[in-house]
Amino acid sequence: MKVLQLIDSLRLGGAEKMSVSYANALAERIEGSFLCCTRLDGFLKEELHTTVNYVFLNKKSILDTNAIFKLKNFIKYHNIDVVQAHGSSYFIASLVKMLWPNFKLVWHVHNGASEQMNFFELNTLKFLSRFFDGIITVNISLSNWAKENLNCKNVIDLPNFVLNNSSSKVGDLTLKGEADAFKIICVANLRPEKDYSNLIKAFKEFAKNKNVSLHIIGNDLDTLYSEKILKELENSGTNKKMFYYGSRRNVIFLLKQADLGVISSRSEGLPVALLEYGLAGLCVVSTDVGHCKDVIKNNGIVVGKEDHIYLSKAFNTYYSNRELAKTDALKFHNDITKKYSPSTVVSRLIEFYNSILITN
């Protein structure tokens, strides 16, 4: 079996990380594992195993014929059996399938924001979903949404997983601020659904008269929203306690320097960052979005979304009780390493591929 992971960008992001993780994990299990980045190359490419065949399309526009035919020819030349299109890359994958239908197309939806698509986006997706042979979602809510709204009913719910790259080269970046501060870290791109305004408000409330710091890692997407958040950080009055690092390699190395990992989103599927917090041994606080509550269980604190007061109180719970923080962090770490390792997930994925391949 030969499988191609398709992704629009290889810059820091949950779907982007998962495309690389799937390509790497499958390389050990199937005949050929491939990854194609359509639009924005990035440093996540460096995490690909040498056994993964990589191609970059350098797509310039939504209907870039050079990119479309380059992808079609790559799939044809390598006799790809399955294309697993992550996120928005379903669009170019569907166009290619119209030209060359001799492969199975699986759409992998990661983001809970898919449920809030506008009329045009949803109808475009609904029309193109007739070319899907299967859909992968990261939680039951997204599975139900896909079955109700799209023209493909072959849907499987697969959780994200984390690969333990502890043997990889460590970074040399030290988190800023006071060395002995209680460090809160958030790994998320500067997008509206990540609700950084809520996080900043919560931290400002929590940080009064405390030796604490907030560390934000994620892409500045050069939008009005990201510009707004960066200004909020700059004008917060606690900017000597809040630090923005942009996109960084080897996030796990940075996470291990922190004390608490936070998800402050108003919409999610199953954030890879949450799993990485567990792998790094952090206690966690998250808003009740997507699959987060089911992952955390009683091993962390879950609060309502868009409520900075309760988010601030959750921070204070772990700040004022370090033993509880250590206990919950250990329980969460053990649960993540046990239930969200690649072996079980990839085995189920290969079974899903096989079921699709035997269907005409």
Rank of each mutant, 00 (worst) to 15 (best):
C186Q: 08
N219F: 14
K72D: 03
Y353T: 12
F203H: 00
Y277E: 04
A85C: 05
H108S: 08
Y196H: 04
T50M: 11
K240E: 13
L311C: 06
D8A: 10
R266T: 15
Y245G: 12
F120T: 14
L12E: 07
N24D: 03
M117I: 08
T359R: 13
E31N: 05
T50A: 14
W100I: 02
M18Y: 02
K201S: 13
N24Y: 08
L349S: 10
L48E: 09
V295Q: 06
H49G: 14
I30S: 00
K104N: 07
I30W: 13
N149I: 08
K256W: 01
G177C: 01
L48A: 12
L175E: 06
Y54H: 14
N139Q: 07
D307G: 03
K331P: 02
F120D: 06
A179C: 04
A67G: 00
E232V: 05
A67Q: 04
K76W: 05
V55W: 12
F132W: 11
L6V: 02
T238A: 03
V83K: 01
S320Q: 14
L48K: 03
S343E: 15
N334E: 13
N79F: 00
L282K: 04
Q5P: 05
K76C: 08
G32P: 02
S197P: 06
L214G: 10
K201I: 13
M1K: 09
L357K: 15
E227R: 13
V251H: 07
A93G: 07
L275S: 09
N24I: 10
N298E: 15
S33R: 10
L324N: 05
Y353L: 04
N66V: 11
S94T: 05
L279C: 11
A67Y: 01
S320R: 07
G177D: 06
S114V: 14
K208G: 00
E268H: 11
V345E: 02
L199G: 00
H78K: 01
E115N: 09
E276F: 04
V109S: 04
F131V: 10
I75R: 06
A314D: 02
N316P: 05
E306T: 10
F120M: 13
I358G: 03
S33M: 03
C186D: 07
G13I: 06
